[in-house]
Design a protein around this nucleic acid. Structure first.
Lengths: 66, 66
DNA sequence: TATGAATGTAAAGTATATTTTACATAATGA
DNA sequence: TCATTATGTAAAATATACTTTACATTCATA
């Protein structure tokens, strides 16, 4: 699975830390997500999509091997 | 967070085991999700929504305390 | 009533998400 | 140049997702 967090973050111009604060996780969690270091929980996916005003499917994209 | 898995499953008339097979998890994982025993990963949420032909937001709903 | 299919549940084990702390680096502006 | 802000990264600790095995229960139906 890949994601567009970095791009969406750029669109609304917020830092990793701001996004982290808005969804109540650590900044490292955001950084690791953007680096595809792990798969976030559905709660985080819903919150992130909400911050960006988009659907989860618009931010997180399944890949063949998933 | 709550979810509509049981209802969506009833709509397309498949068992927990069939859903489990389709998204490649154990039947107990589906059962536990329906019982809100844990929060699934975003990969599973995306796969489940896909099986039901809906958006993640239509199946998984954030609650106040999330 | 007996049988099978679907579901509920529990315990133990493994994998992985997330936090915390800490430090390093890059970029920007005073 | 110096200070600040944003980002990358890593290790250790903790929480939780998910599997496997196993058994119990419910429900429909022969």
């Amino acid at each position: 699975m890949k994601n567009n967090i970095r791009v969406e973050r750029a669109i609304i111009n917020i830092t990793q830390e701001e996004l982290a604060n808005r969804i109540a996780v650590s900044r490292q969690t955001i950084n690791a997500m953007e680096a595809n270091k792990y798969v976030p929980s559905t709660i985080l996916a819903l919150k992130i999509a909400k911050v960006f005003g988009k659907k989860v499917e618009d931010i997180f994209i399944l890949e063949k091997h998933d």
